[in-house]
Amino acid sequence: MALHDAPKTNGAAAAALLAAGIGSFIFGLLTVLKENIKAVGNALNFYNPVGSLSGATTVAVVLWICIWIILHLLLRGKEFKFGGVTLIALILIGLSLVATFPPFFDMFH
């Protein structure tokens, strides 16, 4: 089977999954904060027609990309137990799903 230039280790994939989990979690956290703390909502109002969603998405995406680059540089070329990496990423993604669910973030009003 021709493998082209596919990596021999799973480190790059682990970095991508973990970064996605962390990035999603950051967005979920920012959602809860901006919906419940007026100062955070105002600070994240980068573009008035969109409101605080503009800042939450921008900050989360920028942090996610930075974290991905750092994790990629640290983990590439290494081999991990992928089940553990997946579990951590999925827990973070699950938390982000909960955090972006209105009945959850409205509980703190």
Binding site: A13, F27, A60
Partner: peptide, 22 residues
Amino acid sequence: HVAWLSPILVTAVAYIIIRYRE
């Protein structure tokens, strides 16, 4: 809010599929 999770997740999966291929 929930819609914005999809580009993050899709980008990670796209990277893995494109990078690791077959």
